[in-house]
Computed example of a mutant assay.
Amino acid sequence: YSSNITDILSLCYPHLGNSSCRRIVRPHSVYVLLYIILSSISVLTVTLNLLVIITISHFKKLHSPTNFLLLSLAVSDFCVGFIFIFQILIMDGCWYLSAGWCVFYIVFGLVTTSASVGTVVLICIDRYIAVCDPLHYATKVTVNRARMSVVLCWFSSALYTLAHLDNMKHPGGFNSCIGECVTYTHPVAKVLHLLLTFILPVSTIIILYVRVFVVAVSQARAMHSHVAVVKRQGSVKVNKSELKAARVLGVVVVVFLCCLIPLDIVVLSARFAVVNGSSVVFFLCLYYFNSCVNPMIYVFLYPWFRKCVKYILSLQILKSGSSEANIM
Rank of each mutant, 00 (worst) to 15 (best):
Y1C: 05
S2W: 10
S3Q: 15
N4K: 14
T6F: 06
S10D: 08
L11W: 01
C12A: 09
L16H: 03
G17R: 10
R26W: 11
P27Y: 09
S29G: 02
V30K: 09
L33K: 12
L44F: 05
L44I: 12
L44R: 03
T45S: 04
L51D: 01
L51P: 05
I54P: 08
I56V: 14
S57T: 15
N67S: 05
L69T: 05
S72N: 14
C79K: 04
F82T: 11
I83A: 08
I83F: 10
Q87G: 14
Q87T: 08
I88W: 02
L89P: 00
L89I: 13
M91V: 13
D92F: 04
Y96C: 06
Y96P: 02
S98L: 07
A99C: 10
G100H: 01
Y105W: 12
I106Y: 05
V107T: 10
G109R: 00
L110C: 13
T112N: 03
A115Q: 04
S116L: 11
T119D: 01
V120A: 06
V120T: 13
V121Y: 02
C124T: 08
V131F: 04
C132R: 11
A138M: 04
A138W: 00
K140P: 02
K140F: 09
V141Y: 09
N144P: 00
R145H: 13
M148K: 07
W154Y: 11
S156T: 15
S156G: 05
L159Q: 01
L159N: 05
L159G: 05
M168E: 08
K169S: 12
G173N: 08
G173P: 13
F174R: 07
Y184K: 11
H186A: 14
V188F: 14
V188Y: 07
A189V: 12
A189K: 04
L195G: 00
F198E: 00
I199A: 12
L200V: 13
L200Q: 00
S203K: 00
Y209R: 06
V212A: 02
V212H: 01
F213N: 04
F213G: 11
V215S: 08
A216Q: 03
A216Y: 00
V217I: 11
S218H: 10
A220I: 11
M223G: 10
H224N: 12
S225D: 14
H226I: 06
A228F: 02
V230K: 04
R232I: 10
R232A: 10
N239P: 00
S241W: 06
S241I: 15
E242Q: 14
E242W: 06
L243A: 09
K244A: 13
A246E: 04
V252H: 13
V253C: 04
V254T: 12
F256P: 05
C258I: 09
C258H: 01
C258A: 14
P262Y: 01
R271D: 04
V274L: 15
V275K: 11
S279C: 08
S279Y: 06
V280M: 12
V281A: 15
F282M: 12
F283V: 15
Y288G: 08
P295V: 09
F300I: 14
F300D: 02
F300R: 15
L301H: 06
Y302E: 12
R306G: 15
K307L: 06
V309H: 03
V309Y: 03
V309R: 05
K310D: 02
L313Y: 08
K319F: 11
S320Q: 07
S322T: 04
A325P: 01
N326P: 00
M328P: 00
